[in-house]
Amino acid sequence: MANLLWLQGGACSGNTMSFLNAEEPSACDLVTDFGINILWHPSLGVELGDNLQKLLRDCVSGAIALDIFVFEGTVVNAPNGTGEWNRFAGRPMKQWVKELSAAAGYTVAIGDCATWGGIPATAPNPSDSQGLQFLKRAQGGFLGAGYKSKAGLPVINVPGCPAHPDWISQIVVAVATGRGGDLALDDLQRPKTFFQSFTQTGCTRNMHFAYKVSATEFGQRKGCLFYDLGCRGPMTHSPCNRILWNRQSSKTRAGMPCMGCTEPEFPFFDLAPGTVFKTQTVMGVPKDLPKGVDKKGYIALTGAAKNAAPKWAEEDLFVV
């Protein structure tokens, strides 16, 4: 039996909603099939007031073994570093986070806010928000770069806005069943099993990407969304087109650009007007090119691809 505690900081509850929709395994499977004891969760916990404070204190003291500490949302430091803007169970949430992280076997950050600060930490960051171990791409965050949980791992980052339900539940199962040591993490402490490949990997529009045929309006049944509509699929690490959403689809399959929400810079360009759903260019060339491709190579590739593009690539591919 592994004890799991889930708390929310500066959060919209989006990751909780995502988690409760998990299917493989489901939130119920975690309890019945994998022996995970959910000590408390904002949407599931029954303890209130003094009882909740006692539970949390027992986790901190070790009276209750805290095997997995899951945090959703940012660590709020405002005002003036006190964290008073986000009080929970009698004191600033940041104090609970500090003490619970020190007591936890594994600490898991779920969603962009908990991993890198996400939307709340976007300039001017009025809530003085941080991720658990990063602030955007800078390592450190609230717990500091040197933090390791009792199992010897840094914070396990499962980003996304929200994170896919299966990313959450599968990581939780891995650590609960003693396979936490098998998790390979990338430089941003994301499990490589999910975040080594790109959003573009498995995208049904890859043929249009290859032949440089652009979608010019949302929901079009042809064309790649990278060239004009700001899709970040070729630069974003996520399995969104391998582990589908609702077992059905993904943003790009449905004709909506990937916003790059698993990367620390999300939301990109600080949400400046005109930067969302529009490929940013300098003199007609995209500012952000597919990972590993330089400008010279990109231009050469475009010329060759356009010359080779078959006629069908210009027509609706997904017809009803």
Partner: peptide, 13 residues
């Protein structure tokens, strides 16, 4: 620069 390499250009049409 020419239409042939432009993102909005449909080669066959």
């Amino acid at each position: 620069m020419r239409c042939q390499e432009c993102m909005y250009y449909l080669v066959h049409r």
